[in-house]
Amino acid sequence: MRRCARSAHTLLRRSAAYSPHLPADAVDLLSKDDDYAVRLLLCDPDPRKRWLVGLDPEAPVDAVVRLLADPDDRVRAMAAEHPALPVDLILRSSGNPELSTHALGNPSLPTQVMHQYLDDAGIPR
């Protein structure tokens, strides 16, 4: 994690910032990072700010996956809609009544799955 925290690559630093196992010296380093998203992911308890991760199409996959289990329902909905969410989790979320609307609107949802849901709902092609 320390190597990721010191990386020149923003995405690696973002990933490290979201890790629950980040050592204290890496937390200190990342708290001064130039990238706003790194500082935001580090430890901000405000769900409105965690929701902002959804505005970044290059958000790290592991951050989006972790936000799918966030305590705030709006953050979970954002994660279900995020194109970085792995397909298996989109499919799992599409079966969750709380997240299905959001997951089914995910642009990474496989076309055949989308057609199956539309067929099941009786919507003609």
Rank of each mutant, 00 (worst) to 15 (best):
M1S: 13
M1F: 10
C4I: 01
R6V: 06
R6W: 04
R6I: 01
S7G: 11
S7C: 08
H9I: 14
T10M: 11
L11A: 07
R14L: 14
A17Y: 05
Y18M: 06
S19L: 04
H21V: 02
H21G: 01
L22I: 01
L22V: 05
L22F: 05
A24Q: 08
A24V: 08
A26K: 02
D28S: 06
D28F: 00
L30M: 05
L30Q: 03
K32S: 03
K32Y: 00
K32H: 07
D33I: 03
Y36E: 12
Y36V: 06
L41H: 06
L42P: 01
L42S: 07
C43H: 15
C43D: 15
D44Q: 14
D44H: 08
P45R: 14
P45A: 12
D46L: 10
D46C: 13
D46S: 14
P47F: 13
R48L: 14
R48K: 15
R48G: 15
K49M: 14
K49N: 14
R50N: 13
W51Q: 14
L52M: 15
V53Y: 00
D56Y: 03
D56A: 09
D56H: 11
P57F: 00
P57D: 07
E58L: 11
E58P: 00
E58V: 01
A59T: 05
A59D: 13
V65G: 02
R66E: 11
L67C: 07
L67N: 04
L68Y: 09
D70F: 04
P71W: 02
D73E: 12
D73A: 13
D73V: 14
R74P: 03
R74E: 12
R74L: 09
V75P: 12
V75K: 06
V75T: 10
A77V: 14
A79W: 05
A79F: 09
A80W: 07
H82P: 09
H82T: 05
H82L: 08
P83E: 02
P83A: 04
A84G: 13
L85P: 02
V87M: 02
D88A: 06
D88K: 08
I90V: 15
I90C: 03
I90T: 08
L91S: 00
R92K: 13
S93T: 10
S94P: 04
S94K: 03
S94F: 01
G95C: 11
P97G: 09
L99V: 11
S100D: 13
T101M: 05
H102V: 00
H102D: 08
A103S: 11
A103F: 11
A103L: 06
L104I: 10
G105C: 11
G105M: 08
G105L: 02
G105P: 03
G105Y: 04
N106K: 00
S108K: 07
L109N: 01
P110Y: 01
P110N: 00
T111F: 09
T111S: 07
T111D: 08
Q112T: 10
V113D: 12
V113N: 03
M114R: 15
H115D: 07
Q116C: 06
Y117E: 11
Y117W: 15
Y117A: 15
D119T: 06
D119V: 12
A121K: 10
G122R: 08
G122A: 10
P124C: 06
P124R: 10
R125V: 09
R125T: 05
